[in-house]
Amino acid sequence: MKFNIQSRLLLSHLSAVSKVVNSKNKLSILDNFLFNLQGNMLVITGSDQETTLTSRVEVQDAEGSGMFAANVKTLLDMLKSLSDTALTFEINDENLDINITYLNGHFNFIGVNGNEFPTKAESDEEPKVFTLPIKKVVEGIQHTIFAVGVDDMRPVMMGVYWDIKPDEVVFVASDTHKLVRYRELNTSTGLEQSFILPTKPAGILSSILDKKDGDVKITVDSKSATFETVDYTLSCRFVNGRYPNYNSVIPQSSQYDINVDRQSLLNALRRVSVFTSSSGLVKLELRPNEIFMSTQDVDYSTSAEEKVSCDYNGDTMAIGFNDENIIDVLNNLNSQEITMKLIDSSKAGIFLPSEQGDDEDLLILLMPMML
């Protein structure tokens, strides 16, 4: 086999595929990229057994066809050390000797038989297929992935939940302290389906699709999903288990509604959080036209107070939040102003962007701390 390709083009595709490869693998073959030359199309695959990512890139002057595998670290380190230059790959079909020639030199190493690479088992069930705009998939993941749980004791929380309905797609994530629900409205799928996309493939999918246009073809069965675009195909297994009823924990009414400049509140919280105790408790006291926040650490005799102007004319009330959690929430609300909806000091608070698009509905729930 033989083909030519620009080093930077190859590096961009290998870097994307490498995101799925673990640093340590039970199967040594998974330390490699799988290359499959089909005419002038080079198909590159990486896998960790649970998730598989395939990239397609066009090459020039291709001769022959077939598969071979090459070490991930070797190829990436080699390409990162080169300026953009034309590369000629020559692979001996018999002993898999790989010779890579460029303007000022060449690299030589032995590849691995591509037939050793694991393949996806065929499913007997009829899959469901639908299409979504790339933009909506990326927005759904990026709005929710920060709230995904990391507790191995609650595996169903360790992923982004997709609740697909005929005319909308709802993305949900929760670590039990905070919950994000992002609804993509007026999105025609024509089916009802739900699944939990694990954190790793969700993050990879978002990164490879970010800033791209077009649609994603999504094929779903009871255990896995495949996301396909012109350049990439990602297949992954779902998190097993039943996701909790997220709507049941979202308050449907509030006693206190506060509008405040997001950046002003965020900056003030960052300052006072320096002086929190190990619990991270920040006390927010709502007063007419202002939020008075305070923290203290009795063990070190430190404290901080600051007030932020807001649009609020109700009764005074106080509520406590963990500093890291509320800062995380505000960092992921991309609007100039936000609305806080509170019931009392013991009930979850709702955070909303003051302005949202016609086709979206973002809501973040945050559990309070005891004052």
Rank of each mutant, 00 (worst) to 15 (best):
E285F: 10
L286D: 06
L286F: 13
R287V: 11
R287F: 11
P288G: 04
P288Y: 09
N289K: 07
N289G: 07
E290L: 04
E290S: 04
E290M: 04
E290P: 04
I291P: 04
F292P: 07
F292K: 13
F292L: 14
F292T: 00
M293F: 09
M293D: 08
S294M: 09
T295P: 10
T295W: 11
Q296S: 02
Q296W: 00
Q296R: 03
Q296T: 03
Q296D: 05
D297F: 11
D297L: 14
D297H: 12
D297V: 08
D297E: 15
V298S: 00
V298Y: 08
V298N: 00
V298G: 00
D299H: 02
D299G: 04
Y300M: 14
Y300S: 14
T302W: 01
T302Q: 07
T302N: 05
S303G: 02
A304M: 14
A304C: 13
A304H: 14
A304T: 10
E305C: 03
E305D: 15
E305I: 13
E305Y: 01
E306W: 10
K307H: 13
V308A: 09
V308K: 12
V308I: 15
S309G: 15
S309W: 15
S309L: 15
S309H: 12
C310H: 03
C310L: 14
C310E: 13
C310Y: 06
C310A: 11
D311F: 04
D311V: 12
Y312I: 00
Y312R: 00
N313I: 01
G314L: 06
G314Y: 05
G314E: 08
G314K: 06
D315C: 03
D315A: 05
T316L: 04
T316D: 03
T316P: 03
T316N: 03
M317P: 05
M317D: 07
M317A: 06
M317G: 05
M317H: 11
A318S: 08
I319W: 01
I319N: 01
I319E: 02
G320F: 10
G320Q: 11
G320A: 12
N322C: 05
N322G: 02
D323N: 08
D323I: 02
E324N: 06
E324T: 12
N325D: 11
N325P: 09
I326A: 05
I326S: 04
I326C: 06
I326L: 15
I326G: 03
I327W: 12
I327D: 07
I327Q: 12
D328Q: 09
D328E: 14
D328L: 05
V329E: 05
L330A: 02
L330R: 05
L330K: 03
L330H: 01
N331C: 07
N331D: 13
N331I: 01
N332Y: 11
N332I: 05
N332V: 04
N332R: 10
N332W: 09
L333I: 09
L333F: 05
L333K: 03
L333G: 07
L333D: 14
L333S: 11
